[in-house]
Design a protein around this nucleic acid. Structure first.
Length: 891
RNA sequence: GCGAGAGUGGCGGAACUGGCAGACGCACUAGACUUAGGAUCUAGCGGGCAACCGUGGGGGUUCGAGUCCCCCCUCUCGCACCA
């Protein structure tokens, strides 16, 4: 006997059908409400594996759901095609970055096509093409015009491996480049910046509008922006007219400032150093400059510093205090200078203790007044002001405000808000990026390239190797240009833009991707923006998502986009992981030998081991010893699929062999999409069985369903689902299950509950199988269940859903067949089972009419034999009745 | 240290406003069908012989707590000398 099975060979036909009919083209339903669903566009690094696939399957499921709901859905795709890896790969494989990139795009596109992920390809964007980067350059000019792009000499992060500067966001906490992993150096260079700090406050407060964003991502952005409210206070310098401005969040502690600390890079350091301190100070400054970010930012480190010899004057009491420099004060934050209040700040206390500086308590928490000299930890709690002149006895918070007001009268202080966010450095000394559209005159002034001269085309030079300055500088044809105003010779800026500029606006271009005249048409952008649902990895929580919000706000201010936040809802999906299995060699003596690379990777002993010893050694390294058919292998825990781990399951080959629908169900069912999921053969098996069971069950009755539907007509046929008629027990159960499933799948599909939606479909399939067996024939209810099942399946196993829909006599596409509606009244059966409890413990169950009232339920419960046994000889104190659910007898 | 989140069977995970804990699936066990099974079907599957006990631990609220409140523990992620 041969049962029908799911055949992946049905898939290509449906893919072609969707493409031919343009089912997923935006604008197909111009009068319907719109939805914009977007997955983060990829960097085209090569062929796609299931790790990438998850992202696209999630977006595709959502797209298909909303199309079924009758919406006009925009689901576009593109390529983040500029960037360093293309250059590095091109150098390695002796090709051109452009060729390498375009080849990868073609390959990835084919994988997506085979997987049946449907995009509106007429809106495809590729950031390395002139018809895209022309507008990236246009955007640069817009920012320049609005005073938001500027050139400045700055201490910048220099990546010695990739030979380029990096934005702060692209250097990790250990001071390494996010891309090359190299320790970043500091250099003084003239660079282009975007003034994102001008938007710091809006970027922060508007996070509150983003209800559809994960709290975690919003928290990360808040933290990155790092708003801090306090005051700037000016200290005098003994014997001089200049002042030193410090930033403090605790002006209430001003009377307790016993010294000042400047960052080693502070501009006043050289001037304030007395001759006898010179040698020591110079040595310290040089040392600090050499020190890497990791060292410098470690909290573990002992405090170091040196005194300059000069003295500052505290504006609140005229007291003279010493000025020090120390590398725990950062030039990049606040004013690069602090007042040290060791009694009330832990870092200052450590510093004071290390160098024997005085500690003076000026706030007494809870009425206590500890001695500064013996203080073990800084006092950071609120309390009452002491040793603070006229402010003594006041509440410290109020006193802080009063002190700032008082000093403000003489111009010695002002309230100040400080941010950790720095301006965005966008220049890159690399080839493969959008040229910065600026011209340098002989007199060192700068003029923008006129808009009509865009794009500034990236020249097709052969020698793009990085040598510390932009490779574009070596192209004379590129560098030499004419001043648009004077006609004099000028030189082009030879830097290219950070690729994060390219990706900060691509989602806007999709609204009108083909427009050659303008960046986009106002009507188009108003139709599609903002993005309703953005889907991508958490790794972009700060960089891309912050830049995209910034650029959108700039464009909003320029009247070019309808809303100032680009993404209404954000979903961060989990990774696909897979165990790595490495075969072990078996010696004649029965011992096992690990291959060299495994020994190197996890530190296994480089010698033959008995299986038990090998198992133990592996377990200690979070691996397992697995055996199959007498061969042994080492198996790792789940690790994220990647090229480097070598555990990616390539999309194309898998889909061809098993089917896209199997891949989708495997991924979507295994875990909630926000979690990491483990890809395993067992998971694939489960998904395959589910699809096989669908085909086996409904395939056998396909003609019965089609015939009944043809006989009754579509409307009459569908109304069968709501008729209770004369159903037997199995029929009643199926009807209830059908409506419960429609409701569950509908609600789940809208909140990424794909795993539970599929579980509900499995339950419905199980119930349908039971009813089919009990009835021995395809009943009308069973037929309408099959028909409905096909539509509910459409977001998750689209090819099979189309196949079922066609089997059952549906015409056109299942995506035009409408989403099923459930009947709330059909969710509960006429008679239901309720739970009988005694003292809150389940003791019995009873089947009662659905609408049984409280009195009836109470009587039914007390009539139960089990309940009577337990209640016998005791007093019934109370009976809690929850109609439709439970009766609890309290004795 | 600060911030966000999570602890439920052998595993992934279910559980709406407090109302049958463990849905669905994987793995596993037994049986059936088979030349064969790593296919398929049937049954079982938290622990305990049982009364009962079970959602990280301890208290509390409630007729009733995985869910609410208080305290504690552990883990994951992000940030971290930010004045």
């Amino acid at each position: 006997m041969s049962t029908l099975r799911f055949d992946p060979a049905i898939e290509p036909r449906w893919r072609e059908f969707w493409k031919r009919e343009g089912i997923f083209r935006a604008g197909r339903r111009p009068s319907a409400p719109r939805r914009y669903i977007l997955e983060m566009f990829p960097y085209p690094s090569g062929d796609l594996h299931m790790g990438h696939g998850k992202n696209y399957f999630i977006g595709d499921a959502l797209t298909r759901y909303w199309v079924m709901r009758g919406y006009d859905v925009l689901h576009p795709f593109g390529w983040d095609a500029f960037g360093l890896p293309a250059e590095n790969a091109a150098i390695k494989y002796r090709t051109h970055p452009r060729d390498w990139t375009l080849r990868n795009i073609a390959e990835s596109k084919q994988s997506l096509d085979i997987a049946g992920v449907m995009y509106d390809w007429s809106r495809e964007v590729t950031t390395c093409e002139p018809d895209y980067y022309r507008w990236t350059q246009w955007l640069f000019l817009l920012l320049y015009r609005r005073g938001l792009a500027y050139r400045a000499k700055a201490t910048v992060n220099w990546d010695p491996v990739d030979q380029t500067v990096l934005a702060n966001e692209q250097v990790d906490a250990t001071g390494r480049s996010w891309r090359s992993g190299a320790l970043v150096e500091k250099r003084e260079l003239a660079q282009w910046f975007f003034r994102i700090t001008a938007y710091a406050e809006r970027l922060l407060t508007d996070l509150d509008k983003l209800d559809g964003w994960p709290e975690k991502v919003k928290a990360m952005q808040r933290n990155w922006i790092g708003r801090s409210e306090g005051a700037e206070v000016e200290f005098g310098i003994a014997g001089r007219d200049e002042r030193i401005t410090v930033f403090t969040t605790r002006p209430d502690t001003l009377f307790g400032a016993t010294f000042l600390v400047l960052a080693p890079e502070h501009p006043l350091v050289a001037e304030l150093t007395t001759p006898e301190r010179r040698a020591e100070v110079d040595e310290y400054v040089a040392q600090a400059r050499r020190r890497s970010e990791i060292d410098r930012q470690s909290t573990e480190r002992e405090k170091t510093g040196v005194a300059l010899g000069a003295r500052a004057v505290n504006p609140v009491n005229g007291r003279e205090i010493p000025i020090w420099i120390a590398d725990y004060v950062l030039m990049g934050y606040g004013t690069g200078a602090i007042m040290a209040v060791p009694a009330h700040d832990q870092r200052d206390l450590e510093f004071a203790r290390a160098f024997g500086l005085p500690v003076e308590v000026v706030i007494a928490p809870r009425g206590e007044r500890p001695d500064g000299a013996t203080l073990a930890a800084a006092l950071t709690d609120d309390g009452v002001m002491v040793s603070s002149g006229r402010f003594d006895g006041q509440d410290n918070r109020a006193a802080g405000r009063a002190i700032v007001d008082w000093l403000a009268e003489s111009g010695r202080a002002r309230p100040k808000v400080t941010y950790r966010l720095r301006d965005w450095l966008v220049s890159r000394q690399r080839y493969w990026g959008a040229p910065i559209p600026m011209l340098h005159r002989a007199d060192a002034t700068i003029v923008p390239v006129p808009e009509q001269d865009l794009p500034v085309v990236l020249p097709a030079i052969e020698d793009f190797l990085p040598r510390g300055k932009s490779p574009l500088a070596s192209s004379d044809a590129f560098v030499h240009a004419t001043d648009p105003e004077t006609g004099e010779p000028v030189q082009r800026d030879t830097d290219t833009m950070d690729t994060f500029v390219d990706s900060s606006w691509y989602f806007l271009r999709y609204a009108d991707a083909q427009n050659q005249e303008r960046i986009w048409d106002q009507q188009a952008i108003t139709r599609w923006m903002p993005v309703d649902q953005y889907i991508g990895g958490i790794e972009h929580a700060i960089l891309h998502l912050l830049y995209a919000r910034f650029i959108t706000k700039v464009l909003y201010d320029a009247g070019l986009v309808p809303e100032d936040e680009p993404f209404r809802a954000l979903f961060t999906q989990g990774m696909v992981q897979r165990r790595v299995t490495t075969p072990l060699e078996r010696t004649a003596g029965g011992t096992l030998v690990a291959p060299e690379d495994l020994v190197k990777a996890i530190g296994l002993p480089d010698e033959p081991l008995a299986p038990e010893a090998m198992a133990r050694a592996l377990r200690e390294r979070s691996h397992a010893l697995v055996e199959r058919d007498g061969s042994f292998a080492a198996q790792s825990g789940p690790v994220t699929m990647s090229k480097s781990a070598g555990n990616g399951v390539p999309m194309g080959p898998f889909v061809r062999e098993h089917g896209s629908d199997v891949a989708r169900v495997t991924i979507l069912f295994a875990a909630p999409p926000e979690n990491n999921m483990e890809w395993s053969d067992e998971g694939v098996g489960g998904a395959t069985r589910f699809l096989n069971r669908i085909v086996a069950l409904f395939g056998a009755d396909r003609d019965a369903v089609a015939d009944l539907r043809a006989k009754l007509g579509p409307e009459r046929f569908e109304s069968l689902a709501s008729e209770s008629g004369e159903l037997d027990a199995a029929g009643a159960a199926l009807r209830q299950r059908l409506h419960a499933t429609i409701k569950k799948v509908t609600l789940d599909a809208e909140q990424f509950g794909f795993n539970t939606a599929l579980a509900a479909l499995m339950e419905l399939l199980n119930e349908a199988t039971r009813q089919r067996t009990a009835a021995g024939a395809a009943t009308p209810l069973y037929c309408v269940t099959a028909w409905t099942f096909a539509r509910l399946l459409a977001p998750f196993a689209p090819h099979l859903a189309e196949e079922l829909h066609a089997w059952f006599g549906g015409t056109g596409t299942v995506y035009d067949a409408g989403w099923p509606a459930w009947d709330e009244a059909a969710l509960t059966a006429d008679s239901i089972e309720i739970v009988l409890q005694v003292n809150g413990k389940v003791r019995d169950r009873a089947v009662v009419p659905r609408d049984a009232d409280e009195t009836a339920l109470r009587e039914r419960a007390l009539a139960s034999e089990r309940v009577r046994e337990l209640v016998a000889g005791k007093t019934v104190r109370k009976v809690v009745v929850v109609p439709g659910r439970i009766v609890n007898v309290v004795v």
